[in-house]
């Protein structure tokens, strides 16, 4: 997996709660059998005024000037500031692929939906949970300064905005995987003997499951 250690970047504000994965990448793009190329259609229904699809050229579409990610400098942002329950709904990992492909390295929100949260780690996109009050302050600072940047240090577990340093929590195991860009299938296969032993035991106890 892609590793994450430190990142400094421009922050885009997405000021609405419960942003669901249908909104992050609408269903018509899920027909793809690839992991890449979803960036131009991230938030498609909000980004464009007309309807898109896998075989429609975005260059010919009407862009929605009111949507934040269409407004410079946010079209080049790498950190997304969001509200509560970000990534709820469908399990589609395409949502993470789309954010990654757009150029985001981290999403900061008061809370995330569980499946989206897990999917992010698998792709080197760092989801950071900060207290809703801090998120509110950050929204105000972005509003006051369109060039607002944040520095993220995963090792130190900090988000820094000028003189303000905010700590965040993260599971040690996930942190380690992300910093070292570890492939978790490889990690699991190191325990193949344990998995085999587990299966053996179950065959005895619950033969209907094997």
């Amino acid at each position: 997996m892609k590793s994450f250690t430190q990142h400094k970047g421009l922050v885009a504000p997405l000021d609405r709660p419960n942003v669901d994965t249908d909104a992050i990448i609408p269903k018509q793009f899920l027909k793809s059998i690839k992991r890449t190329g979803f960036g131009p259609n991230a938030f498609d229904d909000w980004r464009y005024l007309d309807e898109g699809g896998p075989d429609i050229d975005n260059a010919n579409r009407r862009v929605n000037p009111d949507f934040v990610l269409n407004q410079p400098p946010y079209d080049k942002s790498t950190i997304l500031l969001a509200r509560e329950n970000f990534g709820c709904g469908s399990s589609r990992e395409h949502a993470v692929w789309a954010l990654d492909d757009f150029g985001f390295r981290a999403v900061i929100a008061p809370s995330f939906a569980d499946i989206f949260f897990n999917n992010s780690f698998k792709n080197g996109l760092l989801p950071i949970v900060l207290d809703a009050k801090i998120i509110e302050q950050l929204f105000q600072r972005v509003e006051a300064d369109r060039g607002f940047e944040l520095s993220i240090d995963l090792e130190a577990q900090t988000v820094t905005a000028g003189d303000n340093v905010y700590d965040f929590d993260i599971d040690d195991f996930l942190k380690n995987c992300l910093i070292n860009g570890l492939d978790d299938i490889d990690l699991t296969l190191q325990h193949a003997d344990l998995i085999n032993a587990y299966e053996e035991k179950r065959k005895q106890q619950m033969p209907w499951l094997c």
């Binding site: 399990s91 990992e93 993470v96 999917n119 699991t188």
Partner: peptide, 22 residues
């Protein structure tokens, strides 16, 4: 429970998932 595509791959390859208890 539902999983993402990377986890689908993980289960296909290992029959296991890395999970935290809820």
């Amino acid at each position: 429970f539902g999983i993402g595509t990377s986890e689908v791959e993980h289960v296909l390859a290992t029959q296991c998932l890395l999970q935290k208890k809820s």
